[in-house]
């Protein structure tokens, strides 16, 4: 008889293997056991800004929440792909254009409640497919050491002037909030005007960075004089880094286009497995409690009338806004992508 020279290491290996395989096979069982009070949220919002809201919701309702954070467009893709067997229940995004895009694709379900009806009509889908939760405007932030307030461009279209060459920074054009802005420009000013403007951006050495926070930091530390970004970045930069920065809202004259105000919002996916919980969550997003978090923590504009804007943020109704409806942003999204492709951006 041959004695097996099988060592203890071999035994360990086998044990670890068995252990791991059981672990994986148990994993799905665990999730299905918790069905009852749970909700799966796909969120394109930055985690620090949405987790406090989710925590509050968990505390209030006892519903288990699984959060999958990622890039807005990637998650929108996911919602589309998952349609035969949806996993995500709620889709949260910073761009209502994407919500409308998903509505047109027919992957959302409608839900309207008394709470949701309190949100102004222009910030939610007419058929109740999605609802806006907080407002954000395209503003300018400048470094006060580098620019005097009187030198600021009256209109955003002046940044292609040679005077601003290499001094302006903005988000990558393919990011959802910038895409929405390009769409609004195409609709308000026409394709030829937009094409000229976008091409001149490159010529004028505008510095494209990856995301609003990068632009904010670049302006804060004086890397560039001027940044195009969402309005709340100004307040965040002041609070977190106490940088010498100012905020400026361009295009406010009587003949100007105004600034684009987009809504970050949410929708329930068609075929979602936790509809009751998802509805509760949407109601919670538009409740005074959650609206206050959006306003105070992230300096966004609360969309529920009666909730105060945070200190240091200019009230929404004092601003002239680009007259482009939010559902147009979704309808035109694909066209804007094709437009950028065609001009080689």
């Amino acid at each position: 008889m041959i004695q097996p020279p099988v060592g203890r290491r071999w035994l360990t290996l086998v044990l670890v293997s068995v252990f791991c395989i059981t672990g994986v096979s148990l994993q799905p069982a665990q999730t299905s056991a918790q069905q009852g009070g749970q909700l799966i949220i796909y969120s394109g919002r930055r985690e620090p800004l949405i987790v406090p809201v989710i925590d509050l919701f968990k505390k209030a309702t006892g519903i288990q929440i699984t959060l999958k954070s990622g890039e807005d467009q990637a998650l929108a893709n996911l919602v589309l792909q998952e349609q035969p067997n949806p996993i995500g229940d709620v889709y949260l995004t910073v761009d209502s254009g994407l919500l409308e895009f998903l509505r047109i694709k027919g992957v959302l379900q409608t839900y309207t409640s008394d709470a949701i009806k309190k949100i102004p009509e222009r910030f939610r889908a007419a058929d109740g497919s999605w609802v806006g939760a907080s407002g954000r405007g395209r503003a300018m932030m400048y470094n006060t050491n580098l620019v005097k307030p009187e030198e600021l461009p009256k209109s955003v279209f002046e940044i292609i002037d040679s005077k601003w060459k290499g001094k302006v920074s903005m988000d990558n054009l393919r990011k959802e909030s910038t895409l929405a802005w390009i769409t609004s420009m195409r609709l308000a000013k026409g394709a030829a005007f937009t094409q000229n403007f976008v091409l001149k951006l490159k010529e004028n050495q505008v510095i494209f960075l990856d995301g609003g926070p990068e632009v904010r930091k670049a302006v804060g530390r004086g890397q560039v004089a001027l940044g195009l970004l969402n309005h709340y970045h100004y307040n965040i930069e002041l609070r977190d880094n106490k940088s010498p920065v100012g905020v400026h809202y361009p295009d406010q004259g009587p003949t100007d286009v105004g600034i684009l105000v987009n809504a970050a919002g949410a929708a329930i996916v068609k075929g979602a497995k936790h509809v009751a919980e998802a509805r509760k969550f949407l109601d919670f997003l538009v409740s005074a409690e959650a609206q206050k978090i959006f306003a105070e923590l992230n300096y966004e504009w609360p969309l529920l009338p009666g909730v105060a804007t945070a200190e240091g943020v200019r009230p929404l109704d004092s601003l002239k806004q680009t007259p482009v409806s939010l559902d147009k942003l979704g309808q035109e999204l694909q066209n804007t992508l094709d437009f950028l492709d065609a001009i080689g951006f």
Binding site: S17, V24, P48, V51
Partner: peptide, 29 residues
Amino acid sequence: QANAIWGTGLADLLRFAWHGLLSAGSAAT
């Protein structure tokens, strides 16, 4: 406040590590 959100506490770190150990261990076996 960001610490809690990003899970820098020991319990959170161990949970993330556990996910990795689980999937990587199964894959290796």
